[in-house]
Simulated assay, not measured.
Amino acid sequence: MSDRKPDPALFAGDLFGEVYQSEIADPGERQTLAGLLPGLLTCLIAALAAMWLAEHYGFPAILLGLLIGLALHFLADHPALGTGLDFAARHFLRIGIVLLGLQVTVMQISAIGWLAFAGLLAIMMAAFGAGLIGAKLSGQGRYAGVLAGGATAICGASAALAIYSVIGRDRLDQARFTITLVGVALASALALSIYPAAAQSLGLDAAQAGYLVGASIHDVAQAIGGGYAISDEAGAQATIIKLARVALLAPAVALIALWLGEAGGAEAKSKPVWRRLSMPWFIIAFLALVAVNSVVTLPVQLAESGLAASKFLLLLAVTATAMRARLSLLLEAGWRPLVPVIAATLASFMAALVVALLLT
């Protein structure tokens, strides 16, 4: 190889990465298993460590994966690991979101009734609006507000990753994206500890408590677990409400894409509406799986396995993303990127409480 240093202008970055100061791969070079394996194995070990800690100490695996990934960020400087970490951050995320479609059917959404569904939309809009306001007050810009509000309104880290694929790193840097992921995961963990107790102390019945938990806790597993921590009836209600929020991931991403447009300024805005409304392939695949699940009775074991696989793939994607983060940029960003997450979380809880009290 030549001793000439690469031009800094050629430093590469992908959807979930900042600037990678490793050797630049030939664009025509095909990815091989041997090239991917070191990074994938490193990510797998970190994710398994997060799962072990989650099982033994009761912390959310996503949050632990983020923290472990950030602690191991220095490993991403090794040239042999970058390709595999990039692959995990991109492709495992997309497959994980697609598999969430196995959990949702049209019948489940229609079963909650139009009034409860309208209330759910109002809660999501309140969270989204609060994220935008929090971002403006903290000087983070509307893209940070869209990310925080959308992630809080829909389904936490998986929604944040999907929405970031629409926003792009050119409009929102990796540091604020990673801090938002940490904030959303931490808020969901705190909500799991606080919301069920709050519902019981406020004297909510099982249906109201399940609605409150399902409509306000971000993560799917934690929302369902929080409902069953109250009662079986509350758990069933929380499951339906939470899955309805997950089903709204695809239309929410489409609307965000239409509103923000693609990166590229006037050229992107000049495209027809139908082009700007186009969704990433994995969101379309998610919708297709929801449709199949609605017309075909799939085995319960398949749905359970799909949920487990989805959670694990999303954990791998989040861990790889965190390992690719540049810690210096996170420290420079400070606490302000957390403000939109806090605002959206508080608004989501208060709006969900009001709607739950009205649904008597």
Rank of each mutant, 00 (worst) to 15 (best):
G65I: 06
S2M: 01
F16D: 03
A308P: 09
D7E: 04
L357C: 11
I167H: 04
L243A: 10
D26F: 08
L327T: 10
L36M: 13
G96E: 01
A34R: 14
L181R: 10
S188A: 13
S278P: 00
D219Y: 07
L314A: 04
A191W: 12
A252G: 08
A197Q: 14
V253Y: 01
A356W: 08
A71T: 07
I284Q: 05
G264D: 02
A209H: 02
A198G: 06
A111H: 02
L202M: 15
L316Y: 10
A111E: 05
V246W: 02
T239K: 12
G306Q: 05
V246H: 02
L248R: 00
I283L: 15
A61S: 11
P60C: 03
A25V: 12
L37Y: 07
A71W: 02
A162T: 06
A34M: 06
L137G: 00
G13V: 00
Y143M: 13
D7F: 00
Q208S: 09
S294G: 06
D86V: 14
D14W: 11
P340N: 11
R171L: 03
D26Q: 11
R169T: 12
I284F: 06
G235Q: 08
G149I: 01
A221D: 10
A50I: 05
T105E: 03
G35F: 04
L75T: 06
G129E: 02
A88D: 01
L137S: 03
A333Y: 09
Q200E: 15
A333W: 06
A157M: 09
T321A: 10
G131I: 01
I240W: 00
P337G: 12
W274T: 11
V354E: 10
G183V: 02
V213E: 02
M279D: 01
L161V: 09
F11E: 13
G235A: 05
L302F: 07
A185S: 15
L330G: 04
L353N: 13
K269A: 15
G101H: 00
A215R: 00
W274H: 14
G261C: 10
G226H: 07
V106C: 08
Q140I: 00
A126I: 01
D3P: 04
I123D: 03
F349C: 10
L327K: 09
Y195V: 15
L37N: 04
L100R: 02
A238P: 06
Q31K: 11
P6W: 00
A308T: 14
L64I: 12
L298E: 07
D205T: 05
I112C: 08
V341N: 14
Q21C: 10
A159Q: 09
A206C: 03
G39E: 05
G226D: 07
P60I: 03
G227H: 07
S2A: 09
Q222A: 13
A50P: 11
G203V: 13
